[in-house]
Simulated scan of single mutants.
Amino acid sequence: MTRFGYTLMTEQSGPKDLVRYAVRAEQAGFDFEVSSDHYSPWLTEQGHAPYAWSVLGAVAHATSRVEIATYVTCPTIRYHPAVVAQKAATMQLLADGRFILGLGAGENLNEHVVGEGWPPVDQRQDMLQEAVQIIRALHTGEVVTWQGDYFRVDSAHVWDVPEGGVPLAIAVSGDKSIERFAPLGDHLIATDPEAALIEGWADARPADAPPSRSIGQVPICWAPDKQQAIDLAHEQFRWFGGGWGVNADLPTPHGFAAASQFVRKDDVAASIACGPDLDELVQGVLPHIQAGFTDVAIVQVGDVLQQQFLDEVAEPLLAKLRAAAA
């Protein structure tokens, strides 16, 4: 049975609101919650970017049932992998085993801020692979010294480490990244509803590896009026139309504004399910279910209707989604 999650969008809500939404989402029946980890929003209209790890710590204490995950953290430029290993271990202890560390190769929007530049995609993948190996080593609880191509670690020891470490989910986009990361990760993260990604990941895993989960994410925009929903989705999510091949390399919200200036409201409505009709919203999620994703995180676009969505819409929408998955 497909599990359905709620997305804590740090780009569109402040930290206290995010914690409040997390509690309400658990009450509404979501199975898990994922958080973005950004230094900047994509568009200035979104208006937020609190530190995700502080929010996640608060969410871990404010909730008791839902799983919690980063979707995703880049452990290569803005964060050193040794630091990511430490905070992920702490999160797992705070969450009583409910935490999954979602990792990816990052976006220029968030990583350029520390002034280390933005490497080409092949180098980013190499850096991510090395970072995953360091995080795995530190989660054993042993003292780690590492001299790699991109990172150095000197006698590092994560003192508060959960038994068994922290499950790692890794974002992939094609055969090359699957071949590289399937043997290293526990679970798959992918944004495109493609069954081939899930099948390729399973084939690339070691024969004795336990089953992986495949975690996807789908934006929707509920509003009492369809045009209101389309207007909101266009204002907040028109950057989405560029695709990750473009989005990963743009450095600022101004760049996203320029890249998306010709994206029409009709274009957004064609790619994001919008409006009050819950059956239409389910249709927007259905491709991920049909592709075989075990976990699908829902993004309700925009902060302005977030509380109303959670109070009035989440429970009946979840019932329809679970019926569709069944």
Rank of each mutant, 00 (worst) to 15 (best):
A169Q: 13
A169W: 13
I170E: 06
I170P: 10
I170D: 05
I170R: 06
I170M: 09
A171M: 02
A171H: 02
A171N: 03
S173A: 05
S173M: 05
G174K: 12
D175E: 03
K176G: 05
K176L: 06
S177F: 08
R180C: 09
R180F: 13
R180N: 07
R180T: 13
F181M: 03
A182C: 08
G185H: 07
D186T: 00
D186H: 02
D186N: 02
D186P: 00
H187K: 04
H187Y: 05
H187N: 05
L188G: 02
L188I: 04
L188W: 03
L188P: 03
A190E: 04
A190K: 04
A190C: 09
T191R: 10
T191D: 09
T191F: 14
D192V: 14
D192K: 15
D192H: 12
P193V: 03
E194N: 15
E194P: 08
E194D: 14
A195T: 08
A195R: 06
A195G: 05
A196K: 11
A196R: 07
L197W: 01
I198H: 00
E199T: 15
G200N: 10
W201A: 02
A202R: 15
A202K: 12
A202M: 10
D203E: 15
D203H: 12
A204N: 09
A204S: 13
R205Y: 09
R205I: 12
R205F: 10
P206G: 10
A207I: 14
A207Y: 07
A207V: 15
D208I: 10
D208P: 04
D208F: 10
A209S: 09
A209H: 07
P210F: 06
P211V: 12
P211W: 12
P211S: 08
P211H: 07
S212K: 04
S212M: 10
R213E: 04
S214P: 11
S214I: 11
G216D: 11
Q217Y: 02
Q217I: 08
V218D: 01
P219V: 01
P219W: 00
P219E: 02
C221H: 06
C221F: 14
C221M: 13
A223D: 09
P224N: 12
P224F: 13
P224R: 15
D225E: 06
K226Y: 12
